[in-house]
Design a protein around this nucleic acid. Sequence first.
DNA 1: AATGAATGAGATTTCATTCAT
DNA 2: TATGAATGAAATCTCATTCAT
Lengths: 210, 210, 210, 210
Amino acid sequence: MPRPRFDKLTPERREEILDVAASEFAARGFEAASLNRILERLGLSKGAAYYYFDGKQDLFAAVVEAAGQKVLDAVDWDRLEGAPDFWLEIDRVLVALSQLFAEDQRLAGLARAVATMGGRASQALSSINEQSETFWERLLAIGRARGAVRDDVPTRLLQHALQGMFQGIDRYDTTAGDERRHGQLASRMAVDFMRRMSESAGTGPRNRTP
Amino acid sequence: MPRPRFDKLTPERREEILDVAASEFAARGFEAASLNRILERLGLSKGAAYYYFDGKQDLFAAVVEAAGQKVLDAVDWDRLEGAPDFWLEIDRVLVALSQLFAEDQRLAGLARAVATMGGRASQALSSINEQSETFWERLLAIGRARGAVRDDVPTRLLQHALQGMFQGIDRYDTTAGDERRHGQLASRMAVDFMRRMSESAGTGPRNRTP
Amino acid sequence: MPRPRFDKLTPERREEILDVAASEFAARGFEAASLNRILERLGLSKGAAYYYFDGKQDLFAAVVEAAGQKVLDAVDWDRLEGAPDFWLEIDRVLVALSQLFAEDQRLAGLARAVATMGGRASQALSSINEQSETFWERLLAIGRARGAVRDDVPTRLLQHALQGMFQGIDRYDTTAGDERRHGQLASRMAVDFMRRMSESAGTGPRNRTP
Amino acid sequence: MPRPRFDKLTPERREEILDVAASEFAARGFEAASLNRILERLGLSKGAAYYYFDGKQDLFAAVVEAAGQKVLDAVDWDRLEGAPDFWLEIDRVLVALSQLFAEDQRLAGLARAVATMGGRASQALSSINEQSETFWERLLAIGRARGAVRDDVPTRLLQHALQGMFQGIDRYDTTAGDERRHGQLASRMAVDFMRRMSESAGTGPRNRTP
DNA sequence: AATGAATGAGATTTCATTCAT
DNA sequence: TATGAATGAAATCTCATTCAT
């Protein structure tokens, strides 16, 4: 994770650095991404880079954390907690997220890049995983408290299954021909899949997707 | 894809080559895998390698295709087609597959490696994608013919969603602590998720998982 | 030079081999040309290639010699010897040659490739140089016997200067934009340059080019 | 072309680098030259090389440009412009150049190397071609302004023909046995050839070479 | 607080040639 | 006569990282 010094930079510079790095990582994946290229595009010296970050992995971690924060912030947790119909609200949440992903093309790429790292990135990604788990745990916990989400399956298992399902849809989206229509359909189906996977039995009518 | 010459090698050598390469690709992903390391471990000269394969990507494609074939072969398609209860048979199929994955640890790694390549590997992976689509299309087509699989969603979208879900579960499996018990649970849950995602409405009782 | 065995091949095969090799050498120059690529395109095995030729240089020599023979054969030496006006006949000769070069695009490329080798190709090119010298010596000797070509400069020097000049024009031709018109102009100017360089003083009017 | 950083090296180091590289390129031509060998001889690490240059072609371009500059600097343009007898002055210029080439053996080799690249080196050699054209355009423009150089032929055509002729003489020079005497003769003849090729008709007596 | 020169290992790939069969 | 498997050196280039200043 970035050294404390990194926070002393102006917010603009900080954001620019993470921005450019995000583009590279998202476009090429962690391994194929080139630190050199990132720094060149940034006009940042090698020395400076290693002054702020501990290396390539550390920069990657910072980038992904920032992206994760964006996702966390895009959800109105209080509203979700208080919503009368959990699944209806989830629908809103996912629509918001899919808009976020549509606006910031790098998010999907980063998600893919993280998935790639697998077991390899030992320490660097621990914070990322925590963050990711936070998101799902929070979301599923709320659902469970409402009795909307099944409790016959470990949270982490459900989380990974959902996460994977979303990534699969993302991959479909990426390779689909007619982009606009597919994007909408994919987003709608994602909600449907999520509900089917997570809903506790007997919660309500079988199929809410019109 | 490997040059025709490759097929002239003894089956043992062929398998050994694909085996070692599979280990490397599965363990590190495509980008981070080192062709050098593979050849070194094989005692194969660089020249020979390029005599049989067109390059790193080509070798990767061969490795993945062989793995894919294993998966295809693990399914008894005729039996699936004739089974009285589709979902019951699917359960058997997935159990078989999860055993296959458990036995050959590299399979999951390869699946991850393929997922990683994303758009980058253009031509080299076309055959792989075909193979993968073949598997799912076949499976879903049978399910649809039986009226067991919903038809309100494009096959490819469903395929990707399912594929991603399984990968998510695999990732859960990989990082879970108590391996044995989790593996079984995960496998059982995978069937449940798949059924929930794919089942056509009104097919039967809501939740078959006891 | 090709081993005697080479002559035992059918003329068609012989020509095909030299043809394909000529394309490669002409297109890439000697160093960058790939023997592998040539053999692949020919469907000729490595073993066979080394059975007929002594190696890359040897093949190159054979290719160039064949090309040189074409050039030698394109000149009607008897007619040149008996022509009433030497320079008028040279004009015809050069037009014929420039047509030959226009028809067989590889000739110019080969000429360039030979020029490249410089001192390096020690033995392999000796025959080529002999051939080349034969051409010019013959041509200049006739001109001298007629009193049309100056004799205050060593033949070999004149030869190299002329050869170089032609190559220069060839290079101009290659890079010129409007191909058709330039080709004609270049060919016409080549004769003019050659005459100016070679004509003995006081042979006639200053400028025959209309 | 070398990155700006290259100019920050000490002049000595800069010259040494270009020197060693020039030797290799001149001796073997571009394709056969080995970047590895150059760096080894220089005691320069690969990384450093690519820190200063963009690659082999880039280094080559730098080498040739430096050489070209030497040639341009060897001509006293002002004096040529003001000389009472253009061709007499050209004689001086060419003698100076032939001395330059005699002193720096690599120059001719480099000229040959450049000629070799032909169409292949697309962008890398654009600056070199400009430089070369500058030299000839300048020289011929002065001659034309004086009425000494014919204007019935495009400058670039004349330029290439002259350039080729000089290279031919250089090749003669290289392969000639008795070096000293030939060199002088060749230099003298080069002037004669150039004049014959370029002189506008009716400028003066037919043959100035005694 | 920052620079940027330098490293050197390692990447993938291509080459001409040999030789057992 | 002919094959084609095998070699291994060498090619160009990129990488993340270090460190003296």
